[in-house]
């Protein structure tokens, strides 16, 4: 198996008396999009700042792209693109000036590449950053993270402040990066931000990883509401006993139920009748995600 792109072992970061990370074991494989989920204050930004050597671990081991951020930070950061959720820069410069400078820190990025990304995001490079809206400022951040085609993208709550159209554009850039074989590590406190692109999600809470799951598996486990319309009336009894099906209610020719996991049994049972319409909500992974939280809460309270 290939060496992981990001690996941490028992990573601990203590701030004064606060515990930032309490033993984080993280493993991000090459070429995957990894969604790093957790509520605010769980340690997401702490982890990211450790990966970039902006802060130093209290104990534990970190390896990024096979290198130690503490020892080989400069060479390592050449291969990383980083975007913070709150992209703060000196506003007294134009977007082009900033991007040219940041490109030069990386040994130069062709002007055409910056123009191409700016055009894609509809960003005016000639304007002073102080005159840009929060969303437009965030676009500058997106451009600087992607412009040098890094092997690893570290994105800290990247789509906060972007409008829905730009979120889609951004996510398609993430997908394109994965298609090129790049690795993406993306943090968020909302599942919906990562569920469209992430291959796997890790859930962090109070400084350690609670669970890691493949998004596909989460989808299978997820609860969804299903509505089936038939040509003729059906009975509740036919469906109530099916695996994964609950809260069945039938009104005339319409069946409504809750579906846990796979849809197979329900579809096969429904196929015995003439199906007129089938409506299934996109599974709410958020609900599942918060399911982990509340379980943890109960455990903590006990």
């Amino acid at each position: 198996m290939a060496e992981p792109t990001i690996e941490t072992e028992n990573l601990v970061k203590t701030y004064g008396r606060n515990r930032g990370l309490t033993g984080l074991d993280l493993r991000v494989e090459p070429g995957e999009v990894y969604g790093f989920l957790g509520p605010n204050g769980a340690g997401k930004s702490t982890t990211i700042r450790l990966l970039l050597d902006l802060i130093r671990p209290t104990s534990g081991r970190i390896s990024v792209l096979g290198a130690d951020p503490r020892r080989d930070g400069v060479a390592l950061r050449r291969r990383i693109g980083y975007l913070a959720g709150d992209f703060i820069v000196d506003g007294r410069q134009t977007a082009r000036e900033l991007l040219t400078y940041l490109g030069n820190l990386r040994g130069g990025v062709p002007r055409g590449r910056i123009d191409e990304l700016a055009a894609r995001l509809d960003l005016d490079l000639g304007r002073r950053i102080s005159g840009l809206s929060k969303g437009n400022r965030q676009k500058v951040g997106v451009v600087q993270a992607f412009m040098h085609d890094p092997e690893l993208l570290i994105l800290d709550e990247p789509t906060s402040g972007l409008d829905p159209f730009l979120q889609q554009e951004f996510l398609s850039m993430v997908r394109a990066a994965r298609a090129d074989g790049r690795t993406v590590f993306m943090s968020s406190h909302v599942m919906s931000e990562v569920q469209q692109t992430a291959d796997r999600v890790g859930i962090i809470r109070e400084g350690r990883l609670i669970t890691v799951a493949r998004v596909e598996e989460l989808r299978e486990q997820a609860v969804r509401r299903v509505e089936v319309s038939f040509a003729d009336p059906v009975t509740e009894a036919e469906f109530a006993a099916l695996p994964g099906v609950s809260e069945v209610s039938v009104t005339g020719t319409t069946l409504r139920c809750r579906l846990d996991g796979r849809a197979d049994a329900l579809v096969k049972a429904a196929a015995g009748h003439t199906v007129v319409g089938l409506l299934s909500e996109e599974p709410d992974l958020e609900e599942l995600f918060f399911g982990y939280y509340s379980k943890e809460d109960t455990r903590a309270a006990a």
């Binding site: 902006l54 400069v74 950061r77 000196d90 820190l105």
Partner: peptide, 14 residues
């Protein structure tokens, strides 16, 4: 303190 040092140091600069 302005919060602008992070970005530069996330680049390949010692």
């Amino acid at each position: 303190e302005a919060g602008t040092l992070d970005l530069v140091l996330a680049h390949p600069v010692g």
